[in-house]
Design a protein around this nucleic acid. Structure first.
Lengths: 247, 247
DNA sequence: ACAGTCGCGTGTACGACGTACGCTGTTTTC
DNA sequence: GAAAACAGCGTACGTCGTACACGCGACTGT
């Protein structure tokens, strides 16, 4: 027998999101920091030294406050990551009055650009439970709005955004993982990275189990590979959506 | 002969991947563990209690060895994550002799299934520098092989895989983030999750800044939403690829 | 004007983490 | 048999997130 139907000690945890608490009325002393400052400082650290370097202690030191002071602004480190995600998400600016296709394309390119400019973003997305921050929600709204009036039901509209979004995140994540690995291991140039992987690649090819992959490594023009692949994939996605929905 | 005739003191750090070290010849005592056992135990812990619960101490305890004994098998925790990724990647089995489209579709569905069955996988991918483990490489080879003989150059072939892979990872990541958040906060049913988000959603809608999004929340049939969206997106991607490459 | 109370900033402390290092004992190779 | 290589282990260090209690400053209601 499991007496689980009255145990609300753990059940209805109504977590209030940080966004709802952002500008609370002032009673007591004036806060010395703003959420914006905190997010910005966190982004700076992450950009310079990677996401692992963003600790509450380091962040507090950079802001000139005690470590625990930060917890007056964020309820946990996850909250901090949400702030940081939202901060860099603000860098995305979409053209007004564009059709859904141009809008989606612009969103895709810019989300990728943000992800590459802030390589920690991918890892942050994977860690944070509630990644729908206001600045991202606003862009969702923009794209949904551009799809309105095309005789689509709302599920289809959301599916369009979801598909583009999924592709961009996956593609960017793939690119970023490699760069971050390079940074962590102290490599600086693309050339150095290729050199570091060389023994492993050689070993793989020597196994003779991956002939087609081997051909790609030998014949492939690894010139601007990632950028080209992204644009190729994106256009495929947009074409596929347009055709399937007749828009 | 000189056992060490390397001249390049400044060369990049030649990290030897764990895969190249897997079955080294035995000198000294017999190992009591295998890499397979370790990976399996790690996967068990992660499945049961989440990726954060996979610590070297806990893993060692489950395996009945001292913590530091594990470092005879993996050189770091990242290595361990690679082993775990490879272990669950083995769950993907593709049909033999299928066309590229069926093969890609099967790969997509199974990779998603693995990601949902092991919700920590997404986070692991984001943490690990070299996520191309043998079992994944083998599937890449399968798909590339199915594209051979269609008059594509190798770059295009790789782009096909890359596009499908990116979409699947992005889509799965999105689904998983929500489930993991629910698990972390102790929620069990989908209903409970919806209830927990209700105040935030209401607050968002009350801002009156996201009318189309609001319509989606109200009108959307959130029934089997994720599964449907995934299949919709996947077919768009496959269609787009097929049309663009004429295959 | 004054008391109450709310909340900001802080210091300390706890339990967990990854892992460097050195030791002991076993197995293989010369 | 001696030497070398290597498995397993215990200890220790530095770091992390954050719970908690304290003191002080600023607003609110009287």
């Amino acid at each position: 027998m499991t007496p689980d139907d009255r145990d609300d000690a753990t059940a209805p945890e109504q977590r209030v999101t940080i966004w709802e608490r952002l500008d609370r009325p002032g009673r007591g002393p004036r806060p010395t920091l703003t959420h914006d400052q905190i997010a910005r400082a966190g982004v700076e650290i992450a950009d310079e030294q990677g996401l692992d370097a963003v600790s509450m202690r380091r962040l507090a030191e950079r802001l000139g406050v005690a470590t625990m002071a930060l917890y007056r602004y964020v309820s946990s480190k996850d909250d901090l990551l949400e702030l940081m995600i939202d901060a860099v998400s603000a860098e995305i600016e979409l053209p007004p009055d564009a059709g859904w296709r141009d809008l989606a394309r612009s969103f895709a390119h810019q989300l990728r650009a943000v992800g590459l400019r802030h390589p920690w973003l991918t890892a942050a997305f994977a860690r944070v439970p509630h990644a729908l921050t206001p600045n991202l929600i606003a862009r969702v709204e923009d794209i949904l709005h551009s799809l309105d009036g095309l005789a689509l039901d709302v599920d289809a509209m959301m599916a369009v955004f979801g598909t583009v979004n999924a592709f961009v995140r996956g593609a960017t994540a793939g690119e970023v993982v490699q760069r971050e690995a390079a940074r962590k291991e102290g490599r600086e140039s693309e050339e150095e990275t290729k050199l570091a992987h060389l023994p492993y690649v050689r070993w793989l090819m020597g196994l003779d189990r991956y002939p087609t992959l081997t051909r790609y490594i030998i014949e492939g023009s690894n010139e601007d590979d990632a950028q080209w692949q992204f644009e190729f994939g994106l256009e495929c996605v947009l074409d596929g959506i347009g055709t399937r929905l007749g828009i």
